[in-house]
Design a protein around this nucleic acid. Structure first.
Lengths: 361, 361
DNA sequence: TGAATTATTGTAAACGTTTACATCTTTTCC
DNA sequence: GGAAAAGATGTAAACGTTTACAATAATTCA
């Protein structure tokens, strides 16, 4: 249809000529550095007339910021990351910054590639939400000159600030609540972490020195803490390692029931998984919440769309995005910053209850 | 002028000095323009040693592309736009391009502001998914020098290419299918368009000269076409103007039932709305699909999570993202391009059926 | 062998800004 | 009224690349 227009892009020089002043004056006026009112209006008029836009490349070269922030996420189309991105976009927009987003699609290789690509493009700063696989990130080296904030994980890079949810509290709150409802056989669907483990060796895996900073692991620790406070022992048969999507919920529920262990409650790594698990369990003839109380995680929009609606741990995902941008901007301005831990809370809905089917019958 | 970090960022000059050649040679080697093998290895080694990265601002100033694409969406955290963005990111990544995303959060004012901001930052091209409000977009003027592709709407800007779903076909397919199931009182929840209208004057509104290019309107036309083919008249009481989220589905269903009109099927503007409508209708004691067959739109992930699972029109949202990037890149390379219409198809699940409750009783 | 050709490298001029410094005006103040 | 101070503007030098063009080195060919 139409070609890129070949109309000349106006420069400072042309504005200067039209206004009858020097480029320096134009630059100063446009940057609000003052000039005689008479001159100022003339310059402004000329700039408007020519539709002048400063060339950002040239400004950048003179040491000005690019006014942008990079954001690397595992998957932009996932509601969790969508909300995070929305927060980041909103906060960046307030500072007239633009956000450059890339998605690693959960793929470590792609992630490396994207980091590399980002480090080549020009960014004032970078927010990095690592894929939860692996623990060494040598490519971070590229960001020695660009401020970087880690989102969603804690304690990965010793000298970079982290913004993350209080996952330990999340696991603890959910478990504590289910215990208070009188449930004692609380199954736990654990998201991945490395080194990979199964439910058999999960206790050791959760204590090994190399297993520090996975959000699922922190939630598991919260779960353990609550059990301990209730003087209950961990039954590893109640634990299942699990993915993060709807189908994973179905599969994990299948695996759990196949184990023929007594279960009266279930904690899932997110609401999609919870929805999947509920679907499977109901198909098997179980009643939710009467037979099994199910708790999700994230307070995803779908948490109110399922039947029953989901009890869940709300993460302030948008807040994580906002805080990350805040931190990055502090770094950009040369301030030193601390980690930000974003609070979580328990949202009680209909997928959990103290009413047991057997106590009714 | 502020330093970005206390470590010096290496320049071509320094690489040149270290390699014992001129900057021109370094530049040529780094751009693959050949040199003596001996020199080449020396330069490459020097560049690696200093961790040299070309300054993109300087390159840009010399007329090189920034290798990025802008993407303006109504809402990044919505699954529809998330999928679109995912497609765009993927395709752009293949060309080593980076995507700059902004969200207008459905707000026309914010949208204007973002367009303005984008036009100031430096982009090789821009993909614009307009908020479905209003029809005049004077701010598009800023993009006289930057290639622009319109996504999600058709025929808005006479000289810009558009990428959009075949909405007429979508509305038609859904209606046709419900008719084939024997449903004849098919309610239609219509997304917004301008000029604003109610169900009363919707027929005229769908035919007015100024109402050309709203996706909901196109779907409505598909609905009318199918009715016409079945020799059925439009009953405007079956039409309800509606938003796009879960709550809107509840509200629209409430409005519809309040009208006390006979309904045996329902077409929604997306799956969230369908889920909301189903929740409300079931609360009112209706059986889905026996009493009312409900069709959604989009084939959102939630379409398989609801009970019943949703019959829906699948839009190839990711494809729209991919195609948009393809078009933009053609424009950037100076080619002329045509609009791309992305196909839709009907996905049949459990929220629709020919079995009527009354035919069972 | 040496002239002609070709391949490689260096020199220097852009690209469009910002800004230190110099210059020229205006204002202030005695 | 005139010197000094303050304010406005212009000049020109960066910033880090790319790339014509010139210069040099390597190769070809009679």
């Amino acid at each position: 249809m139409k070609k890129r227009s070949n109309e000349r892009i106006p420069t400072l020089n042309e504005v200067a000529r039209l206004a009858g002043v020097s480029v320096a004056t134009v630059s100063r006026v446009l940057n609000g550095k003052g000039a005689r009112p008479e001159v100022e209006t003339r310059v402004l008029a000329a700039a408007k007339e020519l539709r002048y836009k400063p060339n950002p490349g040239a400004r950048f070269m003179k040491g000005k910021r690019a006014e942008n922030i990079g954001l690397l996420l595992p998957m932009i189309s996932h509601p969790f990351f969508g909300a995070l991105a929305e927060g980041a976009l909103e906060e960046a927009g307030k500072n007239d910054q633009v956000v450059v987003i890339a998605s690693s699609r959960g793929n470590r290789e792609l992630e490396k590639q994207k980091l590399e690509q980002f480090s080549r493009s020009f960014l004032d700063g970078m927010i990095y939400f690592p894929v939860e696989k692996g623990e060494t990130f040598p490519e971070i080296e590229h960001f020695r000159n660009i401020p970087l904030v880690v989102a969603g994980r804690r304690a990965i890079f010793p000298n970079k600030p982290h913004v993350y949810s209080d996952n330990l509290k999340g696991g603890y709150l959910a478990t504590k609540y289910l215990l208070r409802l009188g449930r004692e056989k609380i199954a736990f669907f654990a998201g991945f972490w490395t080194p990979p483990c199964t439910h058999k060796n999960i206790r050791e895996a959760s204590e090994g020195p190399s297993s520090g900073a996975f959000s699922s692991l922190d939630r598991f620790r919260g779960y353990l803490k609550a059990l301990e406070e209730a003087s209950l022992d961990l039954d590893t048969d109640l634990v299942t390692v699990c993915g993060y999507d709807f189908k994973s919920g179905i599969e994990a529920a299948k695996e759990l029931t196949a184990r023929m262990v007594n279960v009266d409650a279930l904690i899932c790594p997110n609401d999609l998984v919870a929805a999947g698990a509920i679907q499977f369990l109901e198909q098997q003839g179980m009643k939710i919440p009467e037979d099994i109380s199910v708790a999700g995680y994230d307070d995803d929009p779908i948490a109110v769309m399922t039947t029953p609606t989901l009890t869940t741990i709300r993460q302030q995902t948008t807040r994580i995005g906002i805080e990350s941008v805040g931190l990055i901007n502090s770094l950009i301005r040369g301030k030193t910053v601390d980690d930000v831990v974003v609070d979580v809370d328990l949202i009680i809905r209909n997928s959990t209850s103290h009413t047991r089917k057997d106590s009714l019958s």
